[in-house]
Measured scan of single mutants.
Amino acid sequence: NQASVVANQLIPINTALTLVMMRSEVVTPVGIPAEDIPRLVSMQVNRAVPLGTTLMPDMVRGYA
């Protein structure tokens, strides 16, 4: 089972991601792999991401 990136807090739209906003968790469906967390830092979300939501590739500008 692969860990995915999950929002550690509410992340408002257009917010640049920081390490404290994300955690890794084994979830279904699988989202962005946890090993990509360092790559996600400073990328912006293109929608509001509620606490506990799995980050999907289409939620992060420039990721996919």
Rank of each mutant, 00 (worst) to 15 (best):
V20G: 12
M21H: 14
A34Y: 06
L40M: 09
V27L: 10
T15D: 04
M43Q: 11
V5L: 04
T54H: 03
T28A: 08
I37C: 04
V60P: 01
G62Q: 08
T53N: 08
L19F: 10
S24W: 11
P33G: 09
Q9G: 04
R61E: 09
M22D: 02
M43N: 06
T54F: 02
A16W: 10
L40I: 13
Q2H: 08
E35K: 06
P57Y: 06
Q2T: 09
D36A: 07
L19V: 07
T15M: 13
R47Y: 13
V6R: 03
T28K: 03
D58E: 08
R61A: 12
A16S: 15
P33S: 08
V26K: 03
T53H: 14
A48K: 06
E25F: 04
L55A: 01
E35L: 05
T53D: 14
M22C: 03
N1G: 14
P33H: 11
G52L: 05
I13D: 13
V26G: 09
N46G: 10
E25G: 07
P50L: 14
N1F: 14
V26L: 13
Q9T: 15
P12T: 09
V20E: 14
M59Q: 05
D36V: 08
E25V: 05
G52P: 01
A16R: 06
M43H: 13
A7G: 03
S42I: 03
G31C: 04
V41N: 04
D58I: 06
P50T: 14
R47D: 08
P57E: 08
D36M: 07
I37F: 03
L40V: 08
A7P: 01
V6M: 08
S24G: 14
V45L: 08
V30S: 11
Q2E: 15
L40F: 02
Q2I: 08
A7V: 13
E35F: 08
A16K: 06
V60K: 02
V26Y: 11
V27G: 03
P50Y: 09
E35M: 08
N46L: 14
V20A: 12
E25H: 06
A34V: 15
N14P: 00
N1L: 10
V20W: 13
R23L: 11
R23E: 05
V27H: 05
L51Q: 14
I32V: 09
Q2Y: 09
V30E: 15
L51G: 12
V60D: 02
L40H: 00
Q9W: 13
N14W: 08
D36R: 06
V45M: 07
T53R: 05
V27K: 07
A3Q: 05
E35D: 12
S42K: 08
A16I: 09
V6S: 03
P12H: 07
Q44N: 12
R39P: 03
V41Q: 08
R61T: 14
V6C: 04
P38N: 11
L19I: 14
A34G: 10
Y63G: 05
Y63N: 04
P57G: 11
T15S: 10
D58P: 08
Q2D: 15
M22G: 01
D36K: 08
N46D: 13
I32K: 00
Q9C: 05
V6N: 01
A48F: 11
L55W: 01
P12D: 14
M59F: 15
T18D: 12
I13L: 07
Q44S: 09
M43D: 03
G62V: 03
I13K: 13
S24K: 04
Q9D: 12
D36N: 07
A7H: 02
V60C: 03
I11G: 01
I13G: 15
N1E: 15
R39M: 09
I37K: 05
I37D: 00
P57F: 07
S4D: 00
G31W: 02
A64W: 03
L17T: 00
R47V: 13
S24I: 13
T15Q: 11
T18W: 03
T28N: 11
A48M: 14
T54C: 05
P50M: 14
N1I: 15
Q2N: 12
V26T: 12
R23A: 12
N46A: 13
Y63P: 05
T53W: 09
P57C: 13
D58G: 09
A16Q: 09
M56G: 05
L55E: 01
V30W: 06
G62K: 04
Q2M: 14
M43K: 14
A3S: 14
V45C: 06
I32C: 03
V45A: 11
D36T: 06
R23V: 07
I13W: 04
E35N: 09
